[in-house]
């Protein structure tokens, strides 16, 4: 492990006065212990002593604390926001990771060992040796029916979810179909209702029985949670009203031609719409004619 002195000599004044991976070693240990607890209790929100970071609250401090606590020499880091490596926010987070660790970063999903993401899961299937760190704005799935943190915790502890189911029933009465857009609530391991972060419905099925480890960090709300590999993750649905993903029927990516990815809508001055793959790295692989494994 490179010492601060070595890193300072390489990276200069910028890292003077800071630890490897920004956080001090005791903080990292606490966060890793909380993550272990989270992995041991799939879908359960572990409270943790969230540290302030050089990035604002609401901009990814939770995900960042997870990434910084886990990374080490040999790790390769990818950071995306809305599926895009080039977005300003992703660039900014990647830079902080680079500056404080000296680690290699990548755009290629397959090359990364740790992928930090805001609001999307990559289209390329993740392997057993990879970790996906998701940035979470609101970790509490019951917030919609119970505003009090204390009472929501009690509901989780007692598996008392009838008010949540009632809210979903009322959605159906009002709209004739399941409500919810991004961040659809899921039942993890038949025990905890969990907020998967505002990923589109498109990405929800990827959480179920995956090879990779999913870690969730909410810095401002101070919660960590996890879905270990090969865990049952099921969106909340009724027998006769089933969960459905978005469709992009009749639409194709203007860059690569794909018709089977989650797409971004762009408007032009005349009001015309074009669609492009939200996962820019995946779009590149298609354009280059490279085959990658997709989620089943």
């Amino acid at each position: 492990m490179a010492s601060v002195a070595e890193l300072t000599s390489v990276h200069g004044e910028a890292v003077r006065g800071y630890s490897y991976g920004f956080l001090d070693a005791v903080s990292k240990r606490e966060i890793r212990r909380s993550l272990l607890k989270a992995v041991a209790i799939p879908g359960y929100q572990v409270p943790f002593g969230s540290r302030e970071l050089p990035i604002a609250r609401g901009w990814g401090t939770g995900g960042l604390q997870v990434t910084l606590s886990l990374l080490g020499p040999g790790d390769v880091i990818k950071v995306i926001d809305q599926g895009d490596d080039a977005s300003v926010n992703a660039q900014n987070l990647r830079r902080l990771v680079e500056r404080t660790s000296g680690l290699q970063t990548t755009i290629e999903t397959g090359e990364a060992t740790i992928i930090q993401t805001r609001h999307r899961i990559p289209e390329e299937k993740l392997r057993e040796d990879q970790m996906l760190v998701l940035q979470v704005p609101i970790p509490e799935p019951l917030r919609r029916v119970e505003r009090s943190v204390r009472l929501a915790r009690q509901m989780h502890a007692e598996r008392d979810y009838s008010r949540m189911w009632l809210a979903i029933y009322e959605d159906i009465v009002r709209r004739g179909e399941l409500g919810g857009a991004a961040g659809y609530p899921v039942m993890v391991n038949d025990r905890f209702i969990m907020a998967p972060s505002p990923i589109p419905r498109w990405d929800i099925p990827k959480l179920n029985m995956a090879d990779a480890l999913f870690l969730f960090g909410a810095g401002r709300e101070k919660r960590l949670y996890a879905i270990p590999p090969y865990t049952r993750v099921v969106p909340l649905e009724f027998e006769d009203y089933r969960f459905e993903i978005e469709t992009f029927e009749g639409k194709a990516c203007a860059r690569c031609g794909a018709t089977d990815t989650f797409m971004d809508e762009t408007i032009s001055i005349d009001g015309d719409k074009t669609y492009t793959c939200s996962d820019t790295a995946y779009c590149e692989t298609v354009q280059m004619g490279r085959e990658v494994t997709r989620w089943s």
């Binding site: 004044e13 006065g17 050089p54 901009w59 926010n89 900014n92 902080l96 500056r99």
Partner: peptide, 11 residues
């Protein structure tokens, strides 16, 4: 300043 990193510049 949104994408600046709030690192105190001791220099």
């Amino acid at each position: 300043r949104d994408y600046t990193q709030r690192l105190l510049n001791f220099g």
